[in-house]
Amino acid sequence: MEPTGHGARSRDELVIRIEGVTKAFQTPDRGRLTTLDNISLNVPYGQFITIVGPSGCGKSTLLKLIAGLTPTSGGRILYQGAEVRDLNTKVGYVPQESKLFPWLTLEENVAFGLDSKRYSREERERQLKYFIALAGLAGFENYYPSQLSGGMSKRASIIRALAYEPPVILMDEPFGPLDAQTRMVLQDELLKIWEQKRQTILFVTHDLVEAVALADRVVVMTHRPAHIMDVIDVPMKRPRNIFAIHRQEGFDEAYTRLWDIFRHELHIKTQ
């Protein structure tokens, strides 16, 4: 099985290489719709990458390609050196809606990825306890998802992906449908959880502040057919304070660069 501690790896070792990937769909009227056009991106271990772009530009499709849920139409994706051809079970996936399995309790949901072949009974118990406590869900182990609030389901959905320790977590606008306050609290918690293990995270969002606040690097995508317009390094130090992110050094610089790109894309003129 894959080692999960990344301490031994050099900072620059790549976990994902996306090489000239194109994705086209068949439209109902037999046309071809290209959503992703010649996308190339290198993702080193342990980086928190956010992907921003207008809605419908294919950000989610990119995650699906990395997860091997849908095949590429051109180019290739290398995951830990091997080309992704089939389902990539070495990634964790956090979908837009929480998508906890409603027929399983919170604990059973979080335990779903903890394969008995990989984890002994004690390890499993320890892992569950650790992550459930980390997400502040202790005491709710036997609740069904229908009995949990939106924020709780979201946290459970995130630790479900983290619990079996995949090297890469793909997050598809996980905080999209939440209200502003819950969103900030969860961003803060996500960063705190991430600081513990520093998995590689690819986080899709359409919120520019969120993109800058969370990321080491922000990948900017364009309208359909989407290509990568720019990749911005976020020079902010960690750990970060989400609740005062605007005052943190480096935020303005990264945010302004990001906004400039979008302003041009949207043809907004400044006074």
């Binding site: 997860a67 849920l69 964790g92 996936y93 998508k99 399995f101 779903f112 990825g113 394969d115 079996y164």
Partner: peptide
């Protein structure tokens, strides 16, 4: 059946 449940389960090794 919601495709996403199946996808998620398969990604988690089911």
């Amino acid at each position: 059946l919601d495709q996403e449940y199946v996808d998620l389960a398969r990604l988690m090794g089911a």
